[in-house]
């Protein structure tokens, strides 16, 4: 299943890539593939901006503005003026995120 076309903030700087394959190991949507000992973005629109790749790339070759793709969380953020937050439990006592 694919979501909206051409919206994600994923950026890949191939010159910094060493071909270690960590991004391929952690991406749950097969966005990256390896070619000539370097990773490349094979299917950008499958990216869900979870941030696993950027978090684990030792060479700073990946940048993505990661966060939860959740309407309730983003509306929450709009209201409070903060970042999108699905603050479950604690104060709000909301039911999301089991």
């Amino acid at each position: 299943m694919k979501y909206l076309v051409d919206v994600v903030t994923l950026e890949f700087f191939q010159e910094k890539c060493t071909g270690c394959g960590r991004c391929i190991e952690v991406c749950p949507h097969g966005v990256f593939l390896l070619r000539d000992k370097k990773a490349f973005v094979a299917d950008r629109d499958r990216c869900m901006e979870c941030g696993a790749c950027a978090n684990n790339c030792e060479f700073g070759a990946i940048k993505v503005n990661s966060g939860v793709g959740c309407a309730a969380a983003i509306i929450n953020g709009m209201i409070t003026g903060g970042p999108p937050s699905c603050d479950c439990g604690e104060q709000s006592g909301s039911d999301c995120c089991g």
Binding site: M1, K2, L4, V7, P28, C47, S66, G67, G69, I74
Partner: peptide, 17 residues
């Protein structure tokens, strides 16, 4: 339901909203 899926991105949901 975007909050429960395994594939929706924050940028996409922001655009929808």
């Amino acid at each position: 339901f975007t909050g429960s899926t395994t594939f929706t991105s924050m940028s996409g949901v922001k655009k929808e909203l």
